[in-house]
Each structure stands twice: as structure tokens, then as C-alpha cells.
């Protein structure tokens, strides 16, 4: 589903964020991406949704070689991936409903279908009663769940989460992780960047560890 082939990323200014990273993720897998702050976790995520391009090597997503994707085709790639970010990236002047509906509006779904899917996504993350509220009135954990609902509302085959529990207390973190686990159970390929090692060890999943841009597989 996701394959990195000898990928290096050097940012303008010379910082080597990734050094010859290779790995493959099967469809339906769930994997944790760990490593110190600045190890290159976010950079890996950004390469998958084409927010950055590799300096060397190739990234494949669902069989597509991303180095062949033109600027115009980027939105379509991004729509096929659900992303959850640490800083929730919500529209604060829109209701919860409208936030979650955004990917559907972009994809051009009909009114009724949008309502149906948004409610399904909100009920999955346990926010059914909050659709008319604005994000500011929600707690941090609830805002994060709005972000997750938006990431899955379009039923993507791949879900990327960059430190989704970064600001949350252990209790809420566990809830969020359980949610990702559920999506994985129905076949979604899930990749979660985190430095919450306690959580990772409890989940007993494949773990990829980055150290100064170099990737190593952690044995279970």
C-alpha cells in the first residue's frame, strides 16, 4: 500500500531529514512510526501526501509512483488518504458538521450522501450530538476526534496520523488509539507517528523507528 524505495529528503538549507529510507506497508496493516523529535516522522508523512517531494528515491502509494504525480493530480492523491494532524487543522468558523463534510464537498457528493456519511463518521468517533457546535466549544480530545472523523469520512484506504495524541492525557490518548485500531479492523491501512512509547508497546503492532532520518524496524 505504501512503499519507500531508498528515499532521502534534504530540506533547503541542507538538513538531511531522511536518509535512504526503505520499507513497505501492506494493505490493511497498522504501523507505528517512532523516533525522537526531529527524527523525520512528519517528513515521511508529508512525502506520502505530496506536501514535500523526496530529494532521492521513490515513494509508492497504492501502486502509484508519486514522483510521476503532477501538481494538478496532487488533490486526487490527497483525497485517497485520510490525515490527522497534531494541531487539529480544523476550520474554526465552521460547525463540526461542515468541518467533517469538507472532503465530501470537495469530492462533490450529493447533499443526502454528505449528511449520511458525516453522521456515520461522527457517530464512529462518538460526537453524534456535537455536529452543530463550533470547534472552539469542544475539548482538545473532541477536536482531535473531529479531525479523525474528517479523515475517515471519505472512506480512504489509508489513514495517516501525525502525533494524534500529542496534547492529550493518557486516558484520551488510549481512546484515540482504540479508534485507529477500529478503523484498521475494517481494513484501513493505518500509519501513526508518535513518541508515546508506552502506548506503542501496549498495542503490539509493527514499529518503525527513525533515528536522525535513518529507519530501522523494531522487532516485536
Amino acid at each position: 500500500m505504501i512503499r519507500f524505495d531508498e528515499v532521502s529528503k534534504r530540506y533547503p538549507g541542507g538538513k538531511e531529514a531522511l536518509v535512504r529510507v526503505s520499507f513497505e506497508l501492506e494493505a490493511g496493516e497498522m504501523v507505528f512510526l517512532t523516533g525522537h523529535s526531529g527524527a523525520g516522522k512528519s517528513t515521511m508523512m508529508k512525502l506520502i501526501i505530496l506536501m514535500e517531494r523526496p530529494s532521492q528515491g521513490q515513494v509508492f502509494l497504492a501502486g502509484t509512483n508519486l514522483s510521476r504525480v503532477s501538481r494538478r493530480q496532487i488533490p486526487a492523491v490527497r483525497r485517497s488518504v485520510g490525515v490527522v494532524f497534531q494541531n487539529h487543522q480544523l476550520l474554526f468558523d465552521r460547525t463540526v458538521f461542515d468541518n467533517v463534510a469538507l472532503p465530501l464537498a470537495i469530492a462533490g457528493f450529493g447533499h443526502r450522501e454528505v449528511g449520511r456519511r458525516v453522521r456515520a463518521a461522527l457517530s464512529k468517533v462518538g460526537l453524534s450530538d456535537k455536529e452543530k457546535l463550533f470547534p472552539v466549544t469542544l475539548s482538545g480530545g473532541e477536536q482531535q476526534r473531529v479531525g479523525i472523523a474528517r479523515a475517515v469520512v471519505n472512506k480512504p484506504a489509508v489513514l495517516l496520523a501525525d502525533e494524534p495524541t500529542g496534547n492529550l492525557d493518557p486516558e484520551l490518548s488510549k481512546e484515540i488509539m482504540d479508534l485507529f485500531h477500529q478503523f484498521n479492523q475494517v481494513g484501513v491501512t493505518v500509519m501513526i507517528a508518535t513518541h508515546d512509547l508506552g502506548l506503542v508497546s501496549r498495542m503490539k503492532r509493527r514499529e518503525l523507528k527513525l533515528d536522525h532520518g535513518r529507519l530501522e524496524e523494531v522487532a516485536l
Partner: peptide, 15 residues
């Protein structure tokens, strides 16, 4: 910031 978010979730240029 709204434009960034829309582009992040796959909004096309025309959208």
C-alpha cells in the same frame, strides 16, 4: 489557514 486545510484534504485548485 483555511486554504491550507482545504488543500491538505485534497481540495482542487478550482475548488
Amino acid at each position: 489557514s483555511e486554504i491550507e486545510i482545504v488543500k491538505l484534504v485534497g481540495g482542487t485548485d478550482s475548488f
